[in-house]
Structure formats: structure tokens, C-alpha cells
Design a protein around this nucleic acid. Structure first.
Lengths: 249, 249
DNA sequence: AAAGTTCTTCCACTGGATGGAAGGAGTCTC
DNA sequence: GAGACTCCTTCCATCCAGTGGAAGAACTTT
């Protein structure tokens, strides 16, 4: 094998995801790729600490202590909190689905999402990951990502809908325009019936997040949406750079 | 020593808290009680997995992966989501600080909190823990906790303000009344200038959480607040019991 | 009651974990 | 600008915590 103990414990935690919020010991062992006895021992220890909890039915779920720890992550305590009021304003004035996302390795990680009943059905959830090349926020983040990230992503442009951009050259051209014009758009590239616009959120000079909206149709209202997004993005940037908040250092 | 590898890895994670969101390797090792070399190795592994992240300055913070995992905890995905709209309604009609909390071992764990600018300054934050005997939500949770929990808590009634109830007999009497009347109150027992009311939130027959509000003065408006809280609590209960939501099993 | 599950415990062997020590890489001090 | 800091990284011989097959307990199903 050659697996460290820590990596095994982490594999157990990694066995949980949006589709698997509660797992029996056996499932957990199988998904983590560990022998039952080993999983049993590790799971016991994780549970005692509070990383996992056991439901009445005997199944394991993520524990409160992990939830609590997660609240300390900078995504949550810095970015998310700084952005929250601006997202609400945006949502209030447009009533479209609003997204805040960061780049995590080669994917988009959704940090916050506001969606009304009215709005277009969207795939993303808070905490979920999507490919960068097919989402508005993803294109923004990719446009400002380090060269090597961009190259790697361009090598693997998987098709999701008929409109997904899968030619590296075409995407590169789009990214160039994102940098030039300050916003990105998509048209049914991730899911049919959904278009999106997104703009960068900066902290100082570096782009730290992207702010986007999803609407059924862009054509008519693009300029209006872009400026609304930019106002909000600037607000977030100012808050981030601002009075070092309460929670920095 | 006799510490398992897993426990050491967890000690590292446990070194982070609300007052220590970012730690240098040395601090981390000291707080976790580990030799530097050991901490270094474990921290590296945690970072590679995404449990920790490294800031530009070289300090470690909780990583996005932990944040993401935390979103899967039942506290978050079941209770918190079910309660959210009702909390907003409550807040909207009263403009007081609103709290949702659960019992975690012998303490109150705050799951959600809405506070306006207007409201009384309060100690609690989302994810923080406070003693049960000095908070409204705590008294509710204690009143419905298993006998053994109650006994243990009663043995250690630390004084926080001049008004904190520290006599076991007096607290027991209060808890009896909580069960009889369906709500609990506090008057400056946790922090001066703040009073609170709280009611239980049930899932079926069992009390799973407490819903509370903090106000500068109770006298005049108690009945009004209690009924508002109860309406909201019932709503939450119904949602919890309800259509098994999207996210159960 | 027999044949399934899934979970828990045990224990002799072994390879991953350990941590003191030495060596970088900055930063401050006089 | 040499010396004294602090903080981080790497190395490796020793050893103890981790391992996981197997047996058995606790259920459920047939």
C-alpha cells in the first residue's frame, strides 16, 4: 500500500459529499478504500473527537466540530461575510440567481448563492464545484488565473451541453476579451436555458473571487447587469481591503 | 505519550478557534502539543489534502475542503436550512437578536444568529459555544436534556455576572417551569444589559434545538415575544418533520 | 432456525511514524 | 556585517502505533 495513517483518516472524511451525507460503516470503508476493521478503528476515533457523528440509525455523518472548524476558513469568515450584504442588494434589485465563487485548483468553488423561486433552475450549490470553462464565474477566474492553470484547464474542455466551448483557441479568445472588457458571459454552456454574466472581485490587485448572475436570457439587459455586478464587486473589494475587518490576524 | 497518529492530526485542527484563525507552524505545534518536526509533517499532509491552506505570509488557516465538508453536517444542511426562513421572519417582525442553538455535550452551540445594528451587544457567534445555565436557549436545552446531562451541568454552575443562577436547586426549579410553561428566560445572567427568552424546537417528540431572542428588557413584551417564538418554532418543527426535505438520506 | 447482513473485538506482526539534530532562510541587533 | 535571533525544512535510525484477517456478536431476512 504505502498509505499514511493521516491520509486514510482523510480518505474517510473525503468519502462524504453532497450525494453521500450519511454513510454506514461498510459503505464508508468501501468508498474510502479501506479494510473494514481499519475503517472501524479510524471512524471511532474521528467520532470521539467530533469530526463524525452517528445518527440514531447507526449511520455516520459529518460532525458539528467539522462544521464549526469550517466557519473559521477564510472563504467563510473573510470573503463570504464581506460579500454578503452586496449579494443581497444585487439579488434584491435583479431577483436573478446570484453567485460568488473562487477558484480552487482547476475548478470553480461556489462560496455563496442566492436564488429566488422565480429564477432559472441552476446546478450549483454552496460548496459545490463546477468546471471553469462552462460557467460565467469560471471564465472570469480563468481569465485572471496563472498561466499554468489556464494551460491545464484548456487541455481538458469537456463538453456539457451543445453550446459548451470546447475549442481551446476559442476559449482563449474569450478570456482575452474578459480581461479587456471586465466581464464574462456564457450562453447555455453549462445547462440549457441558463445564461450568465460575471465580473471579477479584487483584493488589491489580485482577483480573489468572481461575482456572477444567472438569467434566462442576456441580450436585452446585459449592460444593466454588468454595471450592477461591477458596483457590487467594487463594494466587496473595498470591504476586503478596508478596515482589515475584525477577523484578520 | 500514547497518542495515536489520528489524534495528533486532529489536535492540529483543534488548535484553530475563533481567536486563532491563522497560526504559524511553531504556534500550531505548540498549541497542539507536538514536536515541531512531527507537526511539520502532519501539517504538510493536511495541507496537501486541503484541510489546511497556507496564507501568503506562511501562516496556516483552515482550508476550503473543511469548509465544504462542514456544509454537509446535519446541523447545517438540515436544521439550519429548515430554520432560516423562520428566523428571518422573526427578525423582521421584532428586530431583536435571534438565535438558534443546539446542545453539544454540556454546552450550547450556536447554529445561527441574526443580529441587527440596533440590537443589544451579544457574546454569541455562529459556531461559538456558551454555558447552558446562563443563556435562554441553554436553559431550554437543559430542561429537555437527559437526566445525566442535567446532573453534570448542575455540578458546575460557574458565575458569569452578578445575576447568574449558581444554586443547583434554583436552576432545577427554573427548568421545571420551563417544561411546564414551554419557554425559558434569563435576565442579565450572561452579560449585563441583556435579557433573553427561548422556546424549544422539536422534531417529532424530541427537542432538537432551541430558538431564542435577546432584548434589553423583557417585562413589557414577554407574552408577545413568546408567542412569536412559538409560532416560528412550530414552523421549523413542521419543516423538519415535513417532506423529508431534499437532503435526507 | 438457518443464512444472510453489518458491526465489533482481538492480537501477533510490521512498516509508517517519530523527533532529535543539523542545516537553510530570513530578520533583528549592536 | 558579524553574530544572535527565530522560524522552517529535511534527514534517518529506532520503535511503537497501526494493521487487517479472522472470529464472534448483534441484527435482519428468508
Amino acid at each position: 500500500m504505502g498509505a499514511t495513517v493521516t491520509s486514510r483518516a482523510l480518505d474517510i472524511l473525503g468519502a462524504f459529499d453532497g450525494e453521500h451525507r450519511s454513510l454506514s460503516l461498510t459503505e464508508l470503508a468501501r468508498r474510502a478504500g479501506l479494510p473494514l476493521a481499519t475503517a472501524h478503528r479510524l471512524v471511532g476515533e474521528l467520532q470521539r473527537w467530533g469530526a463524525l457523528a452517528r445518527e440514531p440509525g447507526g449511520e455516520y455523518v459529518i460532525g458539528r466540530r467539522i462544521w464549526q472548524l469550517g466557519l473559521l476558513a477564510p472563504v467563510q469568515s473573510g470573503l463570504r461575510q464581506a460579500a454578503s450584504p452586496f449579494l443581497h442588494d444585487l439579488y434584491g434589485t435583479t431577483l436573478a440567481t446570484v453567485h460568488l465563487a473562487v477558484r480552487d485548483a482547476l475548478e470553480v468553488l461556489y462560496v455563496e448563492r442566492l436564488a429566488g423561486h422565480v429564477s432559472v433552475p441552476v446546478v450549483s450549490r454552496v460548496g459545490s464545484r463546477l468546471p471553469m470553462h462552462a460557467t460565467g464565474v469560471g471564465k472570469v477566474l480563468l481569465a485572471y488565473a496563472p498561466e499554468e492553470v489556464r494551460l491545464e484547464v484548456l487541455q481538458n474542455l469537456t463538453r456539457i451541453t451543445a453550446y459548451t466551448v470546447t475549442q481551446p483557441a476559442r476559449l482563449l479568445e474569450q478570456l482575452r476579451r474578459v480581461r479587456a472588457e471586465g466581464y464574462a458571459t456564457t450562453g447555455e454552456e453549462m445547462s440549457l436555458g441558463a445564461c450568465s454574466v460575471a465580473v471579477p472581485v479584487r483584493n488589491g490587485d489580485t482577483v480573489v473571487a468572481a461575482l456572477g448572475m444567472v438569467v434566462p436570457d442576456l441580450r436585452r439587459q446585459l449592460p444593466r447587469l454588468v454595471s450592477a455586478l461591477q458596483v457590487a464587486a467594487h463594494g466587496i473589494s473595498r470591504t476586503l481591503a478596508g478596515p482589515a475587518s475584525v477577523q484578520w490576524k
